[in-house]
Amino acid sequence: MDLEFDDKMPIYLQIMDRIKMDIATEKLKANDKLPSVREMATKLKVNPNTLQRAYQELERFGIVYTQRGMGTFVGERENMIDDLKQEMAKEVMDSFILRMKRLGFTEQEIIESISKNIIEVKQHV
């Protein structure tokens, strides 16, 4: 897992987001083992306590589970992938809409510009 950090934001939140993203896109699947705190800390060059915190928070939200002496694993809750996708999509859209509004677009204009851009993007992909 490679990760470019934005040091303006708490590092543990960025690590959590990255793991959630990997689960939502099924790079990580239910019951996959996550790297140990130490391994991941060395790889990302962050404090082991920061990783511990990211894992703990993910566990609190039921996204991962820990087995004593075994490690941390991706949870297998039903609908988790969909839930994570919805959650992340909402974040993307909220920030998009907020920024469009700041630029002075009305709601109708935002919807229109999305429809227009979707067609343009489709031609490129």
Partner: peptide
């Protein structure tokens, strides 16, 4: 460090 980033919206370097 994490709380300072969150409350100041800045990196520790900044």
């Amino acid at each position: 460090a994490e709380e300072l980033r969150l409350s100041k919206n800045q990196s520790i370097d900044e």
